[in-house]
Design a binder for these strands. Structure first.
Length: 679
DNA sequence: GGGAACGTAAACATTC
DNA sequence: GGAATGTTTACGTTCC
């Protein structure tokens, strides 16, 4: 009735339980983004801490150097009495900008820090990796510190020598040059530290440990991802060197030796960026080809120009002609801090996308591997015939729950392990979400048990909205037989459906009606009045009786088994080609797992024999046309040429086993009559 | 092509 | 009276 749709919302059991399952399923994929920023240490924090430590250390060293130099100058001044007080003031003024310059990049406002904290939340794993790399970096800094100490000692020695010279008659100019040279060396070392930091940071970014949100070109990017960008370094260096230059100029000295360093000079705008890229990320140049954007692009195309729109991130300015765009590009997107930051952002975006792509590729590969499909990469390996035979058999006897197969159990919802059919063995994007009617019905045919499949692919069915390839009758039976008392109320059957299959968590009106319809329609389902109401049980005899067709008695199947090495007529050419192209080892021994072919064959033989023995003692349910005996003989015959190294062999065996009668009945039903159909 | 099994929809009755 | 449950019929599809 149409009331189903109305009752679904208020449905007692199914809706509640279903809702619970659904709710559980949703947060499963949730990501711990809700963690409070203050509760976790971010990469930015670590980086700032590290930078702060390094700069503090460097500043102290510089201060010590300058203080030493200053004290010695004072000493020499006191000794010689030549130095004027002005010179002393200037010498003091020298150290101030250095200190300021060293401190400036470390200044972060609380708002910025909060922004950083909100954006740069790391997981514990990422934090651990980050800490390890931070430790390595700190080690480098320690080495650098040792180097600085050595430098300081050398400087001290030189100053002592200089002092001796001064005592003789030399002026203080040489001392200043020595200090400048030492500071120059220090700055070079500092640059190296920065480069190491940047490289380290980029590595972190590449590893996904540090993600910079696009559209935040402010301080987080400015001071975190780049550590200290070249402009800052230039500023720092300029302040240091200009002080010297100024002082030396004031002292009428001409010493341009340290100005030969590129960074010391106010370089034209292009160079710093290029240098920055070259120094911080060599790959960036090749990937982004940033230099090309600064160069004269080809007249007809430009990476940043398309459809009359500037493709610079966040720009989207429209231009009538290319020249206007070029003018705009050179004017609006010239090299400055903003453009640099935007480049960084874009680099982050690209890196994140690449990372995501790599992850998705890996996931796809894992999925394909799990599904025994070799992805989209064309394979020249021809598909063995056994595969084709397997497919044929699978199609002929689709529902197959191999009693010995598939030892692994999926822990994640990927795809059903149990071979079911050609359409379910190979999960594709189209059939994964098959929402149509059950076009493939397997469990009903040949009395294949569905319990192995359900148990093995429980996670898959529970979490994936894919229609289980079983008939309603089989599912109902399974639900009932899984119950402790082998009886369930209708509502409990509903619950089982919704609990076990994500697919049945929707369209309840349809499938519930079908369940009721099946319960009433099939004689195998017996309604029993119970204390707590009516319950449904399964009459196994009737259940086995229901299908007087197929498998053993099916000439087609027998033919398929006999000619299992041939291409089955039911196998579409396209599917064959696809299988061959993708080298899909559907149910080879590799997919089966541990059992060797011989042991597998023996096991199947034993199962068959046992089943036949069982069936011989109970011929009540056997129809002449359903005897699986011919199939058994075929199995034996097919098994003969099996060679453990022959890849053609096992599949026929496996497939035969796959659609062999209900082995699982041994386990599920204490072998009551699970093999009746076989005879 | 026919029969069987199955899925789906629906009408109707019964029970709670 | 409404919802849940159970029965039955009809029809289309798939498979053999």
């Amino acid at each position: 009735m149409m009331q189903e749709s109305g009752t679904e919302a208020t449905s007692n059991g199914p809706a509640n339980e279903n809702g619970g399952a659904s709710v559980e399923g949703v947060p499963r994929e949730g990501r711990p983004k809700s963690a409070t920023p203050s509760a976790e240490v971010t990469a930015a924090d670590l980086l700032h801490l590290q930078q702060h430590q390094a700069l503090q250390m460097a500043r102290q060293i510089l201060l010590q150097q300058q203080q030493q130099s200053q004290s010695q100058q004072l000493q020499s001044q006191q000794n010689t009495g030549r130095k004027s007080p002005k010179a002393n003031d200037k010498q003091q003024s020298l150290q101030v900008p250095v200190s300021v310059a060293m401190m400036t990049p470390q200044v972060i406002t609380p708002q910025q820090m909060q922004q950083i904290l909100q954006q740069q939340v790391l997981s514990p794993q990422q934090l651990q990796v980050l800490l390890q790399q931070q430790q390595a970096l700190m080690l480098q800094q320690q080495q650098l510190q040792e180097f600085y100490k050595k430098q300081q000692e050398q400087l001290h020695l030189q100053l002592l020598q200089q002092q001796q010279q001064q005592q003789q008659h030399a002026g203080s100019k040489q001392s200043k040059e020595q200090v400048s040279a030492q500071q120059l060396a220090f700055q070079q070392q500092l640059l190296q530290v920065r480069q190491v930091q940047q490289q380290h940071l980029l590595n972190l970014q590449r590893q996904g440990l540090l993600s910079i949100q696009p559209g935040q070109p402010g301080l987080p990017l400015h001071s975190l991802t780049q550590g200290m960008i070249p402009t800052e370094l230039q500023q720092l260096w300029k302040e240091v060197t200009n002080a010297h230059v100024k002082e030396e100029h004031n002292n009428s000295s001409s010493n341009n030796g340290h100005r030969g360093l590129d960074l010391s000079s106010p370089a034209p705008p292009k160079n710093p960026l290029l240098n920055q890229h070259a120094s911080t990320n060599g790959q960036y140049m090749s990937h982004k080809r940033e230099g090309s954007t600064l160069e004269e692009p080809s007249p007809h195309s430009h990476p940043l120009y398309g459809h009359g729109v500037c493709k610079w991130p966040g720009c989207e300015a429209v231009f009538d002609d290319f020249q206007s765009f070029l003018k705009h590009l050179n004017n609006e997107h010239a090299l400055d801090d903003r453009s640099t930051a935007q480049c960084r952002v874009q680099m982050q975006v690209v890196q994140q996308l690449e990372l995501q792509l790599a992850k998705d590729k890996e996931r796809l590969q894992a999925m394909m591997t799990h599904l025994h499909v070799k992805s989209t990469e064309p394979k020249a390996t021809p598909q063995p015939l056994n595969l084709v035979s397997n497919v044929t058999l699978s199609k002929s006897a689709p529902e197959a729950s191999p009693p010995l197969s598939l030892p692994q159990t999926p822990t994640t919802p990927t795809a059903p392990l149990t071979p079911l059919s050609q359409s379910h063995s190979v999960i594709t994007a189209t059939n994964l979400h098959s929402v149509g009617p059950m076009r493939r019905r397997y469990s009903e045919k040949y009395n294949m048990p569905i319990s192995p499949d359900i148990s093995q692919n429980k996670e898959f069915y529970m979490n994936t909205d894919v229609r289980p390839p079983f008939t309603y009758a089989s599912l109902i039976r399974q639900a009932i037989l899984e119950s402790p008392e082998k009886q369930l109320t209708l509502n409990e059957i509903y619950n089982w459906f919704t609990r076990m299959f994500a697919y049945f968590r929707r369209n309840a009106a349809t499938w519930k009606n079908a369940v009721r319809h099946n319960l009433s329609l099939h004689k195998c389902f017996v309604r029993v009045e119970n204390v707590k109401g009516a319950v449904w049980t399964v009459d196994e005899i009737e259940f086995q009786k229901r299908r007087p067709q197929k498998i053993s008695g099916s000439p087609a199947l027998v033919k398929n088994i006999q000619t299992s090495l041939g291409y089955g007529p039911t196998l579409s050419a396209a599917f064959q080609a696809s299988m061959a192209e993708n080298n899909i080892p559907l149910y080879t021994t590799a997919s089966i797992g541990s059992p060797t072919l011989n042991s597998l064959a023996n096991a199947i033989r034993e199962e068959m024999n046992g089943a036949m023995d069982h069936g011989n003692s109970n011929g009540s349910d056997s129809s002449p046309g359903r005897s699986p005996l011919p199939a058994m003989h075929h199995i034996s015959v097919k098994e003969e040429p099996l060679d453990p190294e022959d890849h053609d062999g096992p599949l026929s065996l496996v497939t035969t086993a796959n659609h062999s009668p209900d082995f699982d009945h041994h386990r599920d039903y204490d072998d009551e009559q699970g093999h009746d159909d076989m005879l």
